[in-house]
Write a protein that binds this DNA or RNA. Structure first.
Length: 292
DNA sequence: AAGCCAGCCAACCGCGTTTGC
DNA sequence: AGCAAACGCGGTTGGCTGGCT
């Protein structure tokens, strides 16, 4: 005997999420926290499967998500991390806490892949094989050697970390900027979340004003009726994300952090911290050197 | 103005791993 | 211990949009 079934497979709605569905989901997470996705459809009345709810939350509604175009810094980080980690989008996303793995994956597939291919062909070499790039052959060679060396160093660090004694001292988290950044995130993500919801409600009310009566009928069945003001919803939502009761949220801001929250062992966390620190210093040290 | 096409991105699908019974 | 379902991740798809002809 296994777990009880997560949701009815029949009558499950697919396709784009409506603002009111978003609000229902946000309302659920506000009350119960992220997780227990299998209970979402029954608790909220959403006709979505739990998997779809989780995806919607992590890729769109989760606090702290930055939308819009990627900065040069982010772009460079993605390129370097992809070179090091491969298509481990969740791992890459953990270094860009404001971006989702889906976003990074999409950005890689639609922009960066093309950009790099272009660089490799037309930009790097002319038809007769002469190098035309802003990377001259020397600097490109240097960059490749550096990259390879860094990959080796990272691998070595990982091996070392994995072979660490249980009694190894735990690094002081406070001394690592990356960890600090994450800790800082926990206080700022909720504001971003409120922004998300504000936008959501804005869109919703806009569509409400122009939409057919069917939608308003459906929405009236939720706790977020059309009478709910943006302010009320935002206050209610953001208040549930106060730092005092939001440890779960702040720790689960990134997929990896979420993994930690779900009981990763202390040693594994130490290993990850060491690797994170290495990667981070590598990325930030070299970002200025890499010309795209 | 209409049709076609390419780009973008949200959402779905499939599969390996984890977890609860 | 073993099974079944949840979970998490990476790959893929399909619909929307804007540009071009």
């Amino acid at each position: 005997m296994g777990r009880p079934p997560c949701c009815d497979k029949t009558g499950v709605k697919k396709g784009p999420w409506t603002p009111e569905e978003d609000i229902m989901l946000v309302s659920f997470v506000q009350e119960h926290g992220p997780g227990n996705w299998r209970t979402v459809p029954t608790h909220t009345g959403l006709r979505r499967c739990s998997k779809s709810c989780r995806l919607r939350w992590t890729n769109y509604l989760r606090p702290g998500i930055k939308r819009g175009s990627f900065s040069d810094q982010e772009e460079k980080m993605i390129i370097q991390l992809q070179a090091l980690l491969g298509n481990k989008w969740a791992a890459i996303a953990s270094y860009l806490p404001e971006r989702t793995d889906n976003d990074i994956k999409n950005y890689w597939n639609t922009h960066l892949k093309k950009k790099l291919r272009k660089l490799e062909t037309s930009d790097l070499y002319s038809n007769d094989g002469h190098c035309l790039s802003k990377f001259n052959s020397t600097s490109r060679g240097q960059w490749e050697r550096t990259l390879q060396a860094d990959i080796n160093t990272a691998k070595q660090a990982l091996q070392n970390a994995l072979s660490l004694d249980e009694s190894s001292p735990i690094p002081d988290i406070g001394c690592y900027p990356f960890i600090k950044q994450e800790a800082k995130m926990s206080t700022t993500t909720y504001a971003s979340s409120a922004e998300n919801i504000a936008k959501l409600l804005k869109q919703w009310t806009r569509s409400e004003s122009t939409n057919n009566s069917e939608q308003s009928k459906a929405s009236s069945s939720t706790q977020f009726s059309c009478n709910t003001t943006n302010n009320n919803a935002m206050t209610e939502y953001s208040s549930s994300f106060e730092p005092s009761n939001s440890d779960q949220f702040s720790q689960a801001t990134t997929p990896e952090a979420a993994g930690k929250f779900h009981g990763e062992s202390k040693r594994e966390m130490d290993d990850e911290i060491q690797l994170s620190v290495m990667l981070e210093s590598w990325l930030f040290d070299e970002n200025d050197d890499l010309l795209i």
